[in-house]
Each structure stands twice: as C-alpha cells, then as structure tokens.
Simulated scan of single mutants.
Amino acid sequence: MATTTYGLDISKRVFQMYWIEDETGEFANRRFNKQQLIEFLGLRQTGRVALEACGSAHWWARKIAALGHTVVLLHARFIRPFVQNNKTDATDARAIWTAAQQPGMRFVAPKTEEQQTMLALHRMRSLLIKSRTMQVNQLRGLLYEFGVTLKAGRVAGLTEFREHLPQIEELMPPTLFCALGDQLRHISMLDDEIKKLERQLGVWRRQEDACRRVAAIPGIGPLTATALVATIGDPTAFKSGRELAAYLGLVPRQTGTGGKIRLGGITKRGDSYLRMLLIHGARAVLFKSRRKTAWCEQVLQRRPVNVAAVALANKMARTARAVLAHNRTYQADYEGLKPSM
C-alpha cells in the first residue's frame, strides 16, 4: 500500500498542507490552525510528512512523529527551486511536497527535546559573552578618554581596574565614576550568568555518553562536545565524515566547468558557532598541545597556520562523526581499514 506524502508549510498561526489522495488521485491544499492540524493528522492514516527546517520545525517533527507519522525536514535552499509562480503558503506547501519526493534529496535530522535545550543554552551563553565583551570595550574606551589605560585582556584589564579604584576615582568626575562602578557590577553579573550556563552544560556532558566519547578527541572540550552532539542530532543522517565537514562549512569551495575544478577557501556554510568552536579547539592543539600527532606536524610544515587549523578542525569533525555513528571510543592510534582495490 502506497504511503501518502504531505507537504506542510508551518508558521506561527497558519499551517498549509498539500497532498494527493491515494484512492481518488484528488489534489488537496488545505489551511489549518494549530489544533485543527493536530486533530487532522491524528485521524489520518500514517504517512510521510515533509516540513521545512525552520523555526519550531523540530517541535512539530516530534509532535507529528508521536501521532505515528514519519517526518522529514528539508533545508529551505532545496525547496526554493520548486516554488511555482508567486510565493504563497499554498505554493510553498506544494513545493515542499515536490522536493521531498526528489531522488537523492538530503534531509535534516530532527532533534530531541534535550538536544534543543542544550543548543538554547549555547545561544544564551553566546549572547551573554557578546554583551560582556561590548561592556568591557565600552569601559576601556570611557576610561581612556580620561587618560586611564588598562592592560590587554579582559581578566587582566578588569583586575587592574579593581586594584586601582582609589587612584582612578581621583581622575574621574564623581558622576561618571559612579556609573562606571555600576557597569563593573553588571559585568560581574554577566560573569556569574555565563558560569551558571556552563555548569548546566557541564552536567549534560557528564551524563550524556556521546558527549563523553566525543570530548576524548584532542581539541574538543566540554563546550564543543555538547554543541557538536546537540547540533549533529542523528549522526547516521550524514553518509560520511566529509558530509558532516561540508555541513559545517569546513571544506573547500569548488567551482568548475569544462572538466576543470578549482578549489577556493572554505565554504563557511552551516553553523558558524560550532565551526568557530572547532577551529579554536584546533588552534589549541597546534599551539599548546605537547603531544601533537605526526599528521599535525606535517601539515604545519606544508601549510600556513590558519590553513592547518582549519584542516585539523575538519579532521576533528570527521573523527567525531565516526565515533558517534559507529558507537566507538576515541583511539589516538586507530587506523581505518582501506577498501581493497
């Protein structure tokens, strides 16, 4: 018996669905509200529901899967070529339905509630760090206007500011000095909030077996491990380690015509936050590790430091995918079996 495929275009309040009835061959393109959609799918025979991987898509994927349907998520870039005429909810639903049935189409793995929670904590931490950096830079600039310079570095600069408060107070107008004190206390509050989020991420890292196995890879710390496991979702959704590296934008951009292929810089596609964590971890291995592998030493001899860092980040991502997809533990001296010719 054929499985009905539904193309579902979601938004905050309006939900458009396109499908073809198996028995009659009739086209259907209906609009629902949230409750009507849940009730409709609950009464329908189990089928395949395709959604665009946008806001709330992972929540809907879990909700629809609980009703017995199979859910697939598609990247918006793969749907756009199938939008006919003007862009409306109805045409978007039909485009999703059409894209989901293309041979070789790649899908986004739905995330669990726990994985989404961890990614939310990472986003909150990232915003707090950005806010703290802005506050510290403004504090430096305001002090510099009155002839006060601080040491380079956030921790060293703030420590020097606190140690020399009496001397700085003599150089500053009372009104401004009072305001700067409030700003310093706000920075301390941001530090406490960041540490609290990091403790919550650390608890999940210790509890999640996948995070512990990934964290054993050199260059992957607690933050990178939790972000990597939560972002990947189902590791088997990627056919190979290179596909994961391409998903993270860590592979060269390819352009070619007439049989000639040119390689450029990395594509920088996908999650920029996770790519940044991996590259920073790779730099830590290249500059601070006392036990760099022979592969790292060879790359450093042949390529510039930045290229070597990206190459190592690519290797770390591939290793993480292999560890997760094959349910293994990291082994520094592991050598994969090459297929026989």
Rank of each mutant, 00 (worst) to 15 (best):
T5F: 06
L8A: 01
D9Q: 02
I10P: 07
V14I: 15
I20A: 08
G25Y: 10
R30I: 08
Q35M: 12
Q35F: 11
G42K: 05
R44S: 09
T46H: 15
G47Q: 05
G47S: 06
V49T: 08
G55F: 06
W59Y: 15
A61Q: 04
R62W: 03
K63P: 06
I64Q: 03
H69E: 12
V71N: 01
Q84V: 15
N86T: 14
A90F: 02
T91N: 13
D92H: 00
A95N: 13
I96Y: 00
Q101F: 05
P103Q: 10
R106I: 12
V108S: 03
A109V: 00
K111P: 02
L119Y: 01
L121T: 09
M124Q: 07
R125N: 03
S126R: 15
L127C: 10
L128Q: 04
V136C: 04
Q138G: 10
L139P: 03
R140Y: 10
G141S: 01
E145I: 03
E145G: 03
E145V: 02
T149M: 10
L150Y: 13
V155M: 12
A156P: 04
F161N: 02
Q167S: 09
I168R: 03
M172N: 00
P173F: 02
P174Y: 11
C178P: 00
R185Q: 15
I187A: 01
D192I: 01
D192R: 08
K195H: 13
K196M: 14
G202F: 12
G202C: 12
R206V: 04
E208M: 05
D209F: 05
R212M: 13
R213V: 02
A215I: 00
P218M: 11
P218E: 13
L223R: 14
A225S: 15
A227S: 14
A227E: 06
V229H: 01
A230H: 00
A237Q: 10
A237Y: 00
S240A: 03
R242I: 06
L244P: 01
A245G: 10
A246F: 10
G249N: 13
R253Y: 09
T255M: 11
G258A: 09
K260G: 04
G264A: 01
K268W: 06
D271I: 05
Y273G: 10
R283A: 06
A284M: 08
V285R: 01
K288Y: 07
R291T: 15
A294I: 09
R302I: 09
N306F: 02
A309Y: 05
K315D: 03
A317I: 05
T319V: 15
D333Y: 07
L337R: 04
M341G: 13
